[in-house]
Design a binder for these strands. Sequence first.
DNA 1: GCCAACGTTGGC
DNA 2: GCCAACGTTGGC
Length: 160
Amino acid sequence: MPRRYWLMKSEPNRFSIDDLRAAPQGIAPWDGARNYQARNLLRDRVKAGDGVLFYHSGTATPGIAGIAEVVRAGYPDHTAWEANGEQFDPKSTPARPVWYMVDVRFVEKFRQLIPLAKLKTTPGLEGMEVARRGSRLSVQPVSRSEWEIVRRIARNMDPG
DNA sequence: GCCAACGTTGGC
DNA sequence: GCCAACGTTGGC
């Protein structure tokens, strides 16, 4: 089966690419999605081995911070069961989980973040979901060509 | 702080 | 089932 590619958003105040790198073995769950479209992707489509563009949102300059890899496909998001947690959702139970998460592993931090504004003006990326106005989905499919273009930008932005 | 986009909730 | 009100995301 061909490898798929995804863009996953994270607010770096909460969990940044540096936090992912610092996690044991560079592996951490990507959890907390509470949207059914995102849930369906996490549960049904995101597989181990898939590539991830790690996106920082909610910052002065949002953009792609680096690369990660999915190491565990969708499984129930147990943070929804933690009654005092921020991500608690009484609709979800261990017997009938509603929300799903995946595990990702740190691969690479770009030496310079690729700003959203840059994505929007890059030929070949105009159609990227994240470049759309009002794009809110926290996990988004990325095409192979979009993936390649982003990686090329990252290489070109790296001095030397 | 503002506002666009859009998902969710709840009255009917 | 419709739709207005409301809440959240997230860029600017």
